[in-house]
Design a protein around this nucleic acid. Structure first.
Lengths: 202, 202
DNA sequence: GGGAACATGTAAGTCGTTACATGATTAG
DNA sequence: CTAATCATGTAACGACTTACATGTTCCC
C-alpha cells in the first residue's frame, strides 16, 4: 500500500466514526472535512472492496429486513495500517491553482475576464465560509467533551484563516485592477504596496 | 481538447515568454509561477509532441552548431486555443489537504505526531515565503513597464496573503495543542476563540 | 577528471473523475 | 404519481508521478 489516500481516509473515518456504508462515508466526508478534502463515489466503492479483500475492513452482515445497506467495520489490521500511515509525514503538496494560472495569462485574454474570475472567486470563498461555519458548529456541539476536539478545531481554524485571506486577496485584487485602469503601472505598484501594508506584510 | 491544463500552460508560456525549449519551459514555470503551479518533465515533453502534432505549436529548426536545443513557437491556432481556454471559467478546485487530514485523525495516532507535522508545516511556509519574495522581485524588476504587471502582482499577492495566513495558523495551532495539554477542552475553546479574535474573525 | 547542471525523452503504474447503469424509498 | 434522495456499483478515460535511460557541457 503506497500512498492510497482514499483508502486511508476510509480507514480513518471507520476508526473515528464507527460502522458506516459507502454512502454514509461520502456524507461524512462532505460534512466534517469537506472544506479540505473530497471523495467521489467512483473511488469509495471500489476501494471498499479492495480494503475488504486485504482484510483491513470487513463487511457486516445485513439484517435481512427492508433495504440492504452494506456497512463496514475497521479490522485490527486496518487500524495498524492507519497508524503506520498517520506516522508518516504528509507529502509536500504540489500547488495547482487554475484560477491564478488564468489570471497570470490575463494579458493574452484581456482584463474583463480576469475581473469576472476574481469576482467569482470572492463568491466561492464566501460560500466556503458558510460551510466552515457549519463544520465549526458541528465540532463544538459534538466534540465538546471528546478528545477529538483540538484536532477538529485546528482543521477548522485552517479553513477560517485561509478563507479570510482569500477573501481579502479578492478585494485587494479588484483594487489593483481599478488602479491599472485609472493610473497605469505606477498606480498599480502603489495599490500593491498599500494592500500589503494593510494586511500587515512587508 | 478537454481540459489539459499542462498543454494550455505550455501555450501560455510560449505566448508570453517567446520561443522556449522543454527544459526552459520547466524552469520558467518553477521561477515565475512555481508558488502556485508545478509541472514535471514527464508531462512537458510528451505534451510538446502532442501540441506539435495538433499544429498548435511548431518546432523551430536547429542552428546546426553545438548542442541541439529544440525550441518551440506558438502557432496562430495555438493562440486561438489558448484564448478559448482562458475565456472559460476555472473549474472549482477540489480541496485535498493531506496535512489537515492527518491532523484530523490525530486522536488515532496521538499528539506528538500532530505537533511535528504542524512544526514542519510552519517551516515549509517560511521557505515558500522566500520563493514568493523572489517572484515578487522578478516581477517588479522585469514587468515594471509591461502590461503583464498587474496580473503578475495579483498572483504574487495571493501567495503572500495565503502564506501569511498559513503561518499564523501554524502558530495558533501550537497554542491550541499547548492549551489541550495544560487545561483540557475548556482551555482549547478559550485558545480557539482568542486565535480567531486576534486574526479579526468571529 | 569529476560533479553539477543542462537536455530530452520513455514506460509503468497510480490516482482520480465522469458518465453510465440500476433500482429502492420517501416526501409532497 | 413523481421527483428527490438514498444506495451501490462499473467502465472508460485522462492526468500525473516516478523511475528509468542517455548523453552533453561547463566549471572547478
Amino acid at each position: 500500500m503506497r500512498e492510497r489516500n482514499t483508502g486511508h481516509v476510509i480507514l480513518g473515518i471507520l476508526a473515528v466514526g464507527g460502522d458506516l456504508s459507502g454512502y454514509e462515508i461520502r456524507q461524512w466526508v462532505a460534512q466534517a472535512i469537506g472544506f479540505f478534502w473530497s471523495e467521489s463515489f467512483g473511488q469509495i466503492y471500489p476501494e471498499l472492496q479492495r480494503l475488504t479483500k486485504a482484510r483491513l475492513i470487513k463487511a457486516l452482515p445485513g439484517e435481512g429486513k427492508g433495504r440492504e445497506i452494506k456497512r463496514y467495520r475497521i479490522a485490527a489490521a486496518g487500524r495498524a495500517e492507519l497508524e503506520r500511515w498517520l506516522a508518516r509525514a504528509p507529502r509536500p503538496e504540489r500547488p495547482r491553482n487554475e484560477l491564478l494560472l488564468k489570471i497570470f495569462f490575463g494579458p493574452v485574454a484581456g482584463a474583463p475576464g480576469v475581473r469576472a474570475f476574481v469576482d467569482e472567486a470572492a463568491k466561492v470563498q464566501s460560500a466556503r465560509r458558510q460551510s466552515i461555519a457549519a463544520a465549526e458548529d458541528l465540532v463544538i456541539r459534538e466534540d465538546r467533551a471528546a478528545d477529538t476536539l483540538v484536532y477538529s478545531l485546528i482543521t477548522v481554524l485552517s479553513g477560517q484563516f485561509v478563507t479570510a485571506a482569500r477573501e481579502a486577496w479578492a478585494r485587494a485584487s479588484l483594487d489593483l485592477l481599478d488602479a491599472h485602469e485609472a493610473g497605469g503601472n505606477k498606480a498599480v505598484l502603489r495599490a500593491y504596496a498599500k494592500a500589503k501594508k494593510v494586511r500587515g506584510l512587508s
